[in-house]
Amino acid sequence: MSRPVISEIPTGPVAVPAVVAALAGGDTVTPVWRNELGGLTFRLEGGHGATRYAKWVPTGTPEIDLPGEAERLTWARRWVTVPRVIEHGTDAEGAWLVTEAVPGRSAVDPRLSADPATAAAAIGHGLRLLHDALPVDLCPYDWSVDRRLVRADERIAGGEGPDDRFPEHRHLGLAEARARIGEPPAVDRLVVCHGDACAPNTLLHDDGTFAAHVDLGSLGVADRWADLAVAAWSMEWDYGPGYDGVVYDAYGIVPDQERLAYYRLLWDMA
């Protein structure tokens, strides 16, 4: 499966937003991630303080809610290892979120992705730890099908169609695709989902074991398959075919093809 460009490690020059330069002070600013919506993540590091990460998105990017992510990180870190929020804000140019670094490297770091089976197992194990640790009854955030269908309809109204989807979904006409996501399978188990449980958002220790989760801007209560579908799907995007089963085994679950297919189409459209 070929993958549309969703996000990547920048390989060329990146313009540093003025607010990020100001936040850095005298620290070295290194771009570490860029998404397809224009959002950027920078590492801020120097000799006189802890390493920080600054996320920035331009104004008019409703898909990325950095104030909402700050709230979710603060809520979740009572039970799991996620970055501590230092500050966040908005101005006429965009929004930003600054967090403390947590130990670990992204699971797509070349030193870790060179052993994809180990990385895939850590991702599945880490996702299970997250789902088991975060209390559904205390979570104020929602990532339900109903909420996500609203976003899917907004995208449809904005003119997005088959060419904007992943290759395996492009054969579906708009009416058929919308009808399919309008008929969700019964909920298996409600958990507090990560909301973007792909490989780059999982941090691993240098020995390949799970360390932490990052990028929790969509965290909320949903069926666990909403996370599992994306986590296992991202194995093919980032490591190549054949590692999705490692994620299921490490999580401790037998793959449910109906739920996987449903939540991948919902992800694609919403």
Rank of each mutant, 00 (worst) to 15 (best):
L112D: 00
S113C: 06
G173A: 11
D227E: 14
P241D: 15
V254D: 14
P116T: 05
A114I: 09
P13R: 09
H194P: 02
W96I: 02
A107G: 15
D109N: 14
E160T: 11
A261L: 05
P135M: 08
F210L: 08
A18Q: 12
T51E: 15
P103D: 15
S218P: 02
T74K: 05
R224Y: 05
V254G: 08
T202H: 14
R84G: 03
W79L: 08
A133Y: 09
L23T: 09
T59V: 09
W33E: 03
R259M: 11
E183C: 09
I9E: 14
R84C: 03
W225L: 11
I64V: 14
A157E: 12
V85D: 04
L130S: 03
A226S: 14
V136L: 05
R147G: 09
P17K: 13
I6C: 07
H194N: 08
P200Y: 00
E36P: 02
H125K: 11
Y251T: 04
A211R: 00
S113E: 00
A107R: 02
A21S: 08
T61S: 07
A120H: 03
I64R: 06
H213L: 15
V136E: 10
I253P: 02
E87P: 03
R224H: 10
G161N: 05
D223K: 04
T41I: 14
R170S: 04
E87G: 07
G124M: 07
L73T: 00
V85H: 01
D163C: 02
Y262R: 04
A122G: 06
E93R: 09
P58D: 08
A18W: 06
A50W: 06
P67R: 05
R189E: 08
D163S: 07
G104I: 03
R52F: 05
R264V: 13
R148H: 09
V246Y: 06
G39R: 01
H213D: 02
I9T: 13
L266N: 10
W237P: 00
H194V: 01
G39T: 07
V150F: 05
F42I: 07
N201H: 07
P110T: 14
A50H: 10
L40E: 11
G173S: 14
D249S: 15
F42G: 04
D249M: 14
L130K: 01
L112N: 01
A270T: 10
P116F: 00
A261G: 09
P116K: 01
G126M: 12
H48V: 10
